[in-house]
Nucleic acid binder design. Structure first.
Lengths: 145, 145
DNA sequence: GTTATTTATCCCTATATAGGGATAATATCA
DNA sequence: TGATATTATCCCTATATAGGGATAAATAAC
C-alpha cells in the first residue's frame, strides 16, 4: 500500500504562492508605472543602493535572475542613465555596476512613494501578521535549497 | 511625533515573497522544459482540465493574467494543438476555450511528472508545514483584496 | 609556459507579461 | 428604434524572462 500522497496539498501550496505574487505585483503596478520603472528595474536599483557597486554576477545572485534576463534589465537602466557599467581592472572579465547620481536621485525620489504604496497594499495586515508571513516564507525558501 | 513605520517589515515581506516565488519557479524549470511547456501554458492547461471549457475572460480571472498576456499563451497553445478556440453562439463576443484530445493527453502525461517534481521540491516541508504556509498565504492574499 | 578548465559576461531566440487602444457584439436607456 | 455605454477579445509595443551558445579573461594542470 502506497503512502498517502501530498499531491493536493502541493498543488494548493503552489497556487497560493503564485497567486499571492501575482496579486501583489498587480497591486504595485500603478506605482511603478507612474515612476516609469519596472519591478525588475526597481529591484536592481534598490539592490545597488543597499549594497553599493556590484558585479553583474553578484547582482544576478542577489536578485535571483538569469544572465540573459539581467542583461536586458541592466541595458535599459544604463540607457536610462541610472547605472553605469565599468570594467573591473582587477579581473577584466568582471563588469562592475554602480548607480549614477541620477540613479541615486531616482532611488531617493521613488522610495517614499514605494513605501507609501506598500503601506497601503499591506494595510490589512498588522505587524504581527507581517512577521508571521515573513517567517513562514523564509522557512519555505530555506526548504527549497 | 510620527507613528513608527512598517517600512522595514514591508520591504522584508516583499523580498520574502518575490524570492520565494523565484526560487520555486527555478526549481520547476527543468520539469517544464523537458515537457516542452512553460509555467503559464501548464497553468492554462491545468485550469481548463479542472474547470472544463472557459471563456478567455474567465480564464483571465482564474489565472490572474492580463488580456495581452493570455492572448499570447493561448495562441501558442492553440498552435501546439492543445486547446481550441470557438465562438460562443450565445454571445458572439465570447471565445470559448477547451482542451483538444491532445491537450487532455498532455495533461494526463505530464501530471505524474509534475506531482513527482513538486514532491521533490517540497520534500523538506512536512504536511503540517505545508498547511501552515497555505494558511498564511491565503490570509496574505485576502488582505490584498 | 602551454594547454585545459573554469568563470564572467554577452548575445540570440522564444515566450511571457502588462497596459492601452481598436473593434465588434451586446446591453442600456431615452 | 436609435444613441450610448459596457463588455469581450484582440493587437501593438516595450520590457522581462530563461536557457544555451559564444567569447574572453583568468586559473589550474601538467
Amino acid at each position: 500500500m502506497k503512502p498517502p500522497t501530498q499531491n493536493r496539498a502541493n498543488q494548493t501550496l503552489v497556487l497560493a504562492l503564485l497567486r499571492s505574487q501575482q496579486r501583489f505585483m498587480r497591486a504595485m503596478g500603478p506605482a511603478f508605472r507612474s515612476a516609469n520603472l519596472t519591478a525588475s528595474q526597481w529591484d536592481t536599483l534598490e539592490t545597488l543602493s543597499n549594497k553599493g557597486p556590484l558585479s553583474v554576477n553578484d547582482l544576478m545572485r542577489l536578485t535571483l535572475s538569469s544572465s540573459g534576463n539581467l542583461d536586458v534589465v541592466v541595458k535599459n537602466l544604463v540607457q536610462a542613465g541610472f547605472i553605469e557599467k565599468a570594467v573591473d581592472e582587477k579581473d577584466r572579465r568582471v563588469r562592475v555596476l554602480c548607480l549614477t547620481s541620477e540613479g541615486h536621485q531616482k532611488v531617493a525620489d521613488f522610495m517614499p512613494t514605494h513605501n507609501r504604496t506598500l503601506d497601503e497594499i499591506f494595510s490589512h495586515l498588522n505587524a504581527q501578521q507581517k512577521r508571521e508571513t515573513i517567517t513562514i516564507l523564509n522557512r519555505f525558501r530555506k526548504a527549497l535549497d
